[in-house]
Amino acid sequence: MANIDVEIGGRRYTVACKDGEEEHLRNLAATVDRRAHDAAGALGNLPETRQLLFAALLIADDLKEVRSGMGLPDPVPPPPDPAVAEALERLAARMENFAETLERATPSD
């Protein structure tokens, strides 16, 4: 297991990786650093946590665009449409009422 130092958003981090993956990890860190600088440049002076949050969101957006361009599905389904959820709730209530009506109409043994 190798340890390398990377710099992201002006701060140095020591990160462990498998032997032989050092250069790959440095490249990934450079991408995160670049997006952290993009976020800071677009939004002004940000606390480190917010800068890294926005960098992660920018990278996730990049990944989503690449996946959609390649025809790959988004691994995280979008949240349900509130209108669909409401319609399903109304339908469930109607079904429950219908079931209760059937139970009352069925003669008991």
Rank of each mutant, 00 (worst) to 15 (best):
residue 50 R to W: 05
residue 30 A to V: 01
residue 4 I to G: 01
residue 80 P to Y: 08
residue 97 N to R: 08
residue 107 P to N: 13
residue 66 V to I: 10
residue 36 A to G: 05
residue 81 D to A: 13
residue 2 A to I: 00
residue 76 V to L: 12
residue 101 T to E: 08
residue 16 A to L: 01
residue 40 A to E: 14
residue 63 L to H: 04
residue 98 F to S: 00
residue 54 F to D: 00
residue 18 K to F: 05
residue 104 R to F: 01
residue 18 K to I: 03
residue 50 R to S: 14
residue 42 A to H: 13
residue 87 A to I: 07
residue 45 N to V: 07
residue 104 R to V: 03
residue 76 V to E: 11
residue 89 E to C: 02
residue 86 E to H: 07
residue 87 A to H: 13
residue 42 A to Q: 15
residue 94 R to G: 03
residue 19 D to M: 01
residue 33 D to F: 01
residue 29 A to V: 02
residue 1 M to N: 00
residue 101 T to K: 09
residue 29 A to S: 07
residue 70 M to C: 07
residue 106 T to S: 09
residue 4 I to F: 04
residue 47 P to L: 10
residue 22 E to V: 09
residue 19 D to Y: 02
residue 4 I to P: 02
residue 85 A to W: 01
residue 34 R to A: 09
residue 95 M to G: 00
residue 11 R to D: 03
residue 59 I to V: 15
residue 17 C to L: 10
residue 83 A to E: 15
residue 42 A to M: 13
residue 69 G to K: 12
residue 52 L to E: 08
residue 20 G to Y: 13
residue 71 G to I: 04
residue 29 A to P: 02
residue 89 E to N: 05
residue 55 A to H: 05
residue 89 E to R: 14
residue 8 I to P: 04
residue 65 E to W: 03
residue 6 V to F: 06
residue 49 T to K: 12
residue 1 M to C: 00
residue 6 V to G: 04
residue 17 C to E: 13
residue 104 R to M: 07
residue 73 P to E: 13
residue 87 A to K: 15
residue 102 L to N: 03
residue 28 L to K: 04
residue 4 I to E: 01
residue 31 T to C: 05
residue 17 C to R: 11
residue 67 R to A: 15
residue 94 R to M: 06
residue 13 Y to Q: 04
residue 65 E to C: 03
residue 7 E to P: 00
residue 73 P to Q: 11
residue 3 N to Y: 00
residue 26 R to W: 01
residue 83 A to S: 13
residue 71 G to T: 06
residue 47 P to W: 10
residue 107 P to K: 11
residue 6 V to R: 03
residue 71 G to W: 07
residue 59 I to D: 11
residue 53 L to F: 10
residue 30 A to K: 09
residue 9 G to A: 08
residue 55 A to I: 02
residue 33 D to K: 08
residue 75 P to R: 03
residue 49 T to Q: 14
residue 103 E to G: 02
residue 11 R to C: 00
residue 109 D to Y: 06
residue 4 I to N: 02
residue 94 R to Q: 09
residue 72 L to H: 11
residue 95 M to K: 08
residue 35 R to A: 08
residue 80 P to G: 11
residue 25 L to S: 08
residue 57 L to D: 02
residue 61 D to A: 08
residue 27 N to L: 12
residue 100 E to P: 00
residue 13 Y to G: 04
residue 50 R to V: 13
residue 53 L to D: 10
residue 82 P to V: 11
residue 85 A to G: 06
residue 8 I to E: 07
residue 28 L to V: 10
residue 58 L to N: 15
residue 78 P to I: 14
residue 20 G to I: 12
residue 41 G to M: 12
residue 42 A to V: 07
residue 28 L to R: 08
residue 4 I to C: 02
residue 6 V to C: 04
residue 21 E to R: 08
residue 4 I to W: 05
residue 7 E to R: 12
residue 31 T to L: 14
residue 89 E to A: 14
residue 54 F to K: 01
residue 56 A to M: 09
residue 35 R to E: 13
residue 47 P to S: 10
residue 19 D to G: 00
residue 71 G to S: 10
residue 44 G to K: 11
